[in-house]
Nucleic acid binder design. Structure first.
Lengths: 131, 131
DNA sequence: GTTTGCCCTAGAGTCGGCTCTAGCTTCTAC
DNA sequence: GTAGAAGCTAGAGCCGACTCTAGGGCAAAC
């Protein structure tokens, strides 16, 4: 059932094959990828799942160095759960802060959009008859 | 009442003086900044307000080129409101998408945090007495 | 009168995160 | 047997957004 080529993993994760190799060089993979004939990478579902986590962490702005750090903790196995928790909690804080920032920005943008819609509406639309 | 030095504006906006000069070079200012003795920049409240908008747009991920484009429209004066609206709406879409992404990531992270808290809790805490 | 502090310009440097290239191998299909 | 697709490595290149440096000006405080 398992045994995916880099191209297939690229499709599944939304990363390019370049980025997959780059992430590997950067130490973002929990385990070294298996190699098939001619040294071709052979990924299994576990690899794809882990890459999915990496994608989510990146999407939420975690820098590669932090993802590497977290990966290393996971790779090191049991006994460092407190450290992993610390990394994740730290990141969660940053995500919450980001959400707040984004929300503030959204307010401003929505406000401005409303203003321009109003202005344009005055020109485009026949004024309402007050009933 | 008005008449702020670059240093004061840096404090007010949270940008560095370097970044303020950089933004100016990049054409992010609605009007050219006034200059005082010895060519020192003299900002007024309007400049600071505009920079505040820029900061919000940047904080929500709008690239400098798009901010410049929007700035140019504003600078050009009335008559291009439809274009401004288009820029803003486009950006709002992207912000909403980002919020959604972040939210998804937050779910994952919170889930993982809960798992590790659970695992560690088993070790750290005296088990509750069921009353 | 010189030190300190803030400012100026032009341009170079840095950093993170990809992204691409060159040159080669290997497999599959024709 | 050869053309094409997909993979490999090592390393270079690129882009956006800052960030800093060199070299200098001016004005107030000591």
């Amino acid at each position: 059932m398992s045994g995916l080529s880099i191209g297939q993993v690229a499709e599944r994760t939304g990363l390019s094959v370049h980025t997959l190799r780059f992430y590997e060089r950067e130490g973002l993979l929990a385990q070294p990828v298996r190699r098939g004939t001619a040294g071709h990478r052979v990924y299994d579902e576990g690899d794809v799942d882990w890459l999915g986590v990496c994608v989510r962490l990146r999407a939420s702005g975690m820098p590669l160095t932090d993802i590497r750090r977290y990966t290393e903790l996971v790779r090191a196995g049991q006994g460092n759960e407190a450290e992993r928790l610390e990394v994740l909690r730290g990141h969660r804080e940053r995500v919450l802060a980001q959400l707040h920032e984004l929300d503030e920005s959204l307010k401003l943008i929505t406000h401005k959009v409303a203003i321009y819609e109003g202005r344009l509406g005055l020109r485009d639309t026949v004024p309402d008859c007050v009933p």
